[in-house]
Design a protein around this nucleic acid. Sequence first.
RNA 1: GGGCGCAUAGCUCAGCGGGAGAGCGUUCCCUUCACACGGGAGAGGUCCAAGGUUCGAUCCCUUGUGCGCCCACCA
Length: 956
Amino acid sequence: MIEKTYQPAEIETRIGAAWDAEGAFKAGRADRVDAEPYTIVIPPPNVTGSLHMGHALNNTLQDVLCRFERMRGRDVLWQPGTDHAGIATQMVVERQLMERKEPGRRDMGREAFLERVWQWKGESGGVIVNQLKRLGASCDWSRERFTMDEGLSEAVVKVFVQLHREGLIYKDKRLVNWDPKLLTAISDLEVLQTEVKGNLWHLRYPLEGKTFSPEDPTSFIVVATTRPETMLGDSGVAVNPDDERYTHLIGKNVVLPLVGRLIPIVADEYSDPEKGSGAVKITPAHDFNDFEVGNRHGLARISILDTEARIALLDNEDYLRGLPEGSAQLVEELHGMDRFAARKLLVQRLDDFGFLEKIEPNTHMVPHGDRSGVVIEPYLTDQWYVDAKTMAQPAIAAVRTGATQFVPKNWEKTYYEWMENIQPWCISRQLWWGHQIPAWYGPDGKVFVAETEEEAVGHALGYYVEQEVITAEQGHDMALDPAKREGFITRDEDVLDTWFSSALWPFSTLGWPQDSKDVERYYPTNVLVTGFDIIFFWVARMMMMGMHFMKDVPFPTVYIHALVRDEKGAKMSKSKGNVIDPLSLIDQYGADALRFTLAAMAAQGRDIKLATSRVEGYRNFATKLWNACRFAEMNECVLPTGFDPTAANEVLNRWIAHETVKATREVTEAIEAYRFNDAAGAAYRFVWNVYCDWYLELAKPSMMGADSAAKTETRAMVAWARDEILKLLHPFMPFITEELWAVTAARSQLLVLTPWSRKAVGLTREQELLVIASAANDPLVAPVVTMDPVPADFTDDAAEAEIGWVVDLVTAVRSVRAEMNIVPATLTPLVLVGASAETQARARRWSDVVQRLARLGEISFADAAPQGAVQLLIRGEVAALPLKGVIDLGAEKTRLDKELGKAEADIKRADAKLSNEKFVANAAEEIVEEEREKRDAAVARKAKVLEALERLKNAE
RNA sequence: GGGCGCAUAGCUCAGCGGGAGAGCGUUCCCUUCACACGGGAGAGGUCCAAGGUUCGAUCCCUUGUGCGCCCACCA
């Protein structure tokens, strides 16, 4: 029995639990071992995360694909898992420690802290997974992975070691993006350029050998900067070699104000005469451009900041080197000062001594850390890098050749743009939570990269014996006795960028490098579904790693979906407070409604502006479906075994079979093309506007009538089409369809969607397989769910024409009645004027339906329309509603005049085209023919309307 | 500075070389035996602007205007 009211929360909880208990979505099931695999890896959400609207969209689309392919008989593996999200997770746990007033990370030490993070992961890591289950995600949960679990960590180490051996990973000392709050390097992608209102300070740098005076422009050179505090680290001033204002100064020195250091004026193309004063201060240790310029001219790299971006001058060898005697009085004052405070103080001092020429307000882009939000410092440190430029080449080629295609295609341009200008990827992070880099350092700092410490020890001992740092005997002892080599080599403290492990996700989750069985079966995956915001972070890197280690693309298709925005199109963010929580929508309207909404709005290449009214509308759709199934149940509509819809006798039943096949084809084609909105739309229209609005209404008389053969057939067909609808909607609305299927399947016994249904029907697993096998022979099981492709080309034009006539008639009569304000209780007679034999037959067949739906009395036939009747044109014939005394003749004349005007306009338009020789000559044959037909139809319509007007005149 | 995208009904959006569509909202009618989270009938649009291509442009091209996003080291 279907419950009277649709209660999504109750259903979804119960069915979700049943799926879970059944392990309903396991890949590699016994009945699918011979089936073609279909694989998707989930974009692993952060373990710290909770479900947001982006996840909801992303996973809804993946689930649509997975359920769709599963019903088509594929062996579906939707690989789930979570990401350890290095920085994010570490921050969360540190914040927790702080809130609880517990010792901080550094106080408790690395080991204890990591234990704490694992503990936290154990407690909260399941949240997002449960939320995905609430959404209905049909992942194979038995295979859930975590980027830091044992197998995946092994993959990470193996990849690192191999790439290092191949020279594709290396250590280098250069400028990195340093986050002074998180105290780690970050990659270029983790830096957000933000517009900031600042100033441009113009500073006077005195020329060596001249007496500095602010009044004497020949005694100094002006440089402009947005970061005056970096002047402490200046080691040169650059001017453009073609800039005549400065050519005479090239090679001379300036005296760095306040500091007293002599630094050279160099000629470099980098200096743009148009910008600022045309002379630019060079600070190689604190600016990416200056670093390059410094390299070209051999300028010193003077680092003046510590890791927390405080001024660090005491004991700073870089700074003190070459510094004139007695010029360090500022040092005491500045040392340890925050960079922004130092800026203020320095500007003040420069001004005091006349070195500040002017201050211009200036808005410019300033780099910020995407996690910390603080201003990023270019900072000189040793870090590990991936040679991305080399690795990008095969990944670029794979897209060029079409081995991997983006949908929509325009994202390929974005991909190329970035890949072709790719920079070395900084992969080391000064964090604790993550994969520790498998590199060890010997006493002299030499690096040994190896998969295990033992291996590293072996390499190191061999090397140092050879170098005669230790004797062969010592080496031998140390190799044998761990106690003797204690502290001889030390492991790199740093961990890897989170995205390093994510890049391996498509194969590391399948068991690589340990187990190749699943890799062989499920790699490459079939499609990657993700948002455009992580094309660079993730997609590009999976492409690189996949090409390098699997020698094959990780996925032939990348479907890029939109961002979900709020109703007004703003990006959802906590700070704006416009975040719509998918879970509260699920609570309110059900996961099915939310899923359907997201799918229906997922048009390619456009962001989704989510309005809750849409969700409500699709919840109503679910209710409609619910009630339709309840109606079928109340009328004892049961699908008999072996029912063949193509063999139906009743026109109405042939019509709905025809419409069902058509809708199924539309939905199938749309899903195959990743046009989720078209698929959802087609299903929606079919269910509501075809099945509910017309088929069930038209079927009522038959089901309640006396013709038992017709009654039996109609009941069967109502059940058949209902089952097809459930299958069609299942990828979008899995919970409600599962429930309705399970409740009705006991009598339908056609196809089992999932083990849950099997349970409901009371089948054993063996019986279930038999049912599936028999369903494969069903001649008209629509392709969306069938085990084998079936003829999806069943059509019945005659049925379509007949039902079309009924629909047109009912619609037209209703329209007139509404216009004439005829109360529903009044049944108006209908006269079919000059009806053909076919029309008369139709009218007799459909009289009771038409009478009920159009509120008609007796239906009769006549050669001429009675006087004072409203005359309607139904497919070229006249239908009259004798409404003498009821109708307003004037209003009716107006109505007919309007119709006449329309017909005449149509004729005119067609004539204009058809009399145009060029149109007839150039347009496609069928277009011209269509135009002629339109004209003929309009001419006929005009004649009928004129006749009607004539009769109206006589009636007066 | 590069690149991408969007301007269609009051709102949110589909569509796309041959007579403008949906959902929501809105107006009117309906306790018609599945469903008022429903049924029925309407109203509502120089498809941003100007040129061009074409027999024909909301759709293709160019330019402009407005808006959004991504990338970039410019003092």
